[in-house]
Computed example of a mutant assay.
Amino acid sequence: MSRESVPGHDISYHLVCFDETGDERGRDSADVVSDARAGVTDVFFFIHGWNGDVPAARRQYGQWVRTMADCRAERAVAHRLPGGFTPLLVGLHWPSKAWGDEDVRSEEFVKAQALRLGGGAGRTAAVRTIVQAAQRHPCRMSAAVKEAYDYLESSVPDLPGEDRMAFDAEQLYRACLEDPALGGILSPLRILTFWKMKRRARVFGESGAARIARDVAQAAPAARIHLVGHSFGCITATAVANVVPAASLTLVQGAMSLWSFAERLPGEPGSGHFRGVLGRVPGPIIVTTSRHDHAIGRFYPLAARSGRQVDLDEYPKYGAIGSHGVQGTYAHGHQVGSPGDLVRGQVHNVDCSSVIRRIDGIAGAHNDICHPELARLLWRVVLSR
């Protein structure tokens, strides 16, 4: 069974796991579809971000659901809505462990990083060259290391081309030296895995996540589907909304381009990759931001721009919605404590810096997302029928 309990509440949620190609591991989705047929009114799909394994996903989803369940006044209002409120809660896990906990001096680390970049003898040898050099001279990039990085960039399959400039390991390395938290010749390796996981998030959204959402929608055609993503999970959630009818879309500290919904891309032809989602979601589209999110504010634009800032008016060309909100289309602006009216079918950029603020290592406050204020914001989305 896929059912997970929530401490302190008589509430449970389903945890459904998928592999790196978007195929389900096991048959837990059958339990979800079965429950969907039991007269549910609202289905919540929670989708975690990058660098998350199954235990981390279980902890995050348990905290999210518990924080929402603690909002007893909002729950009571939901149950008084016409038709009542019978929720189905589903957490989706996708393999997003882009930078593991292995000892960087070990062969285990070498093999793990090579596998995350596609595997094979050539990539393993290139990663080994980089790691061994980092042990000897962590602040110097030799010609051999640069060559190894060039090989990886050219050989790693399916690195996304959108929202990033050409990969230049030496330029990235020099840019990372400006911020001690990002420095060292292993930093371009971190960025390569970052891009690999970014693409995987979209592929998962278009494959496994979309399939289970579509199956649930067919099993419970009258139910409202709420998609809630964090970090790269925002890419997954938006990709699902692009193909499956969803009542609402909540993007928490999204690691996706601030121009994803733009009518026109800055300085380039065409529109944002997810422009078509606008108009498909009848409920509010919520986008949280925080200036304390270093993973989004520092690392994401560095990975996207290869160390060179490009200013277009007041917004960068390469940046994430978790820092700047959605740009290039009309969006309402709010503070988390007083968001005002949530207009159905429109984007709401909500500044959550007053709540998402607890610094935790290189990521800053990126994972500081379980707060009553955010839970109440999601409840407002649910109640805006």
Rank of each mutant, 00 (worst) to 15 (best):
D101M: 12
A126W: 02
G8S: 06
V355Y: 06
G333Y: 11
E206F: 06
C352Y: 06
A76F: 07
A126P: 02
K111W: 10
M256Q: 00
E170Q: 15
L182N: 09
V6C: 04
A217R: 15
A210W: 02
D368E: 05
R199D: 13
V243K: 15
F18G: 08
E147Q: 13
R291S: 14
G184S: 07
K146L: 14
E153I: 11
M256C: 00
Q113S: 10
L15Q: 13
H371K: 03
I47G: 00
V336L: 14
M256I: 02
A303Y: 05
L189P: 00
H137I: 08
M197C: 12
W195R: 07
T250N: 09
S257D: 01
V110S: 01
T21V: 14
S29M: 05
R123H: 01
D215G: 03
S142W: 01
G26L: 03
V381S: 13
G345C: 01
D150C: 04
Q327H: 15
R224N: 06
L177Q: 15
W64D: 09
V347C: 04
T250W: 01
A181G: 15
R3L: 15
L115W: 12
V131K: 01
P339Q: 05
A223M: 03
R72F: 10
H332T: 12
W50H: 07
R123M: 00
G229E: 00
M68E: 06
Y318R: 01
G297E: 10
C234P: 07
R202E: 13
M197N: 06
V350F: 03
V65M: 06
S271H: 13
V16T: 02
W50Y: 14
L177I: 08
D293H: 06
D341W: 08
V287A: 06
C71Y: 01
C17A: 10
G322P: 08
A181Y: 09
R128G: 04
Y318N: 00
V203D: 07
P269D: 13
D70C: 06
A303N: 05
N51G: 02
V381P: 06
L152I: 08
E102R: 10
M197Q: 15
A112C: 06
G345V: 00
F85W: 12
F261P: 01
G297W: 05
D179C: 10
T250P: 01
W379T: 07
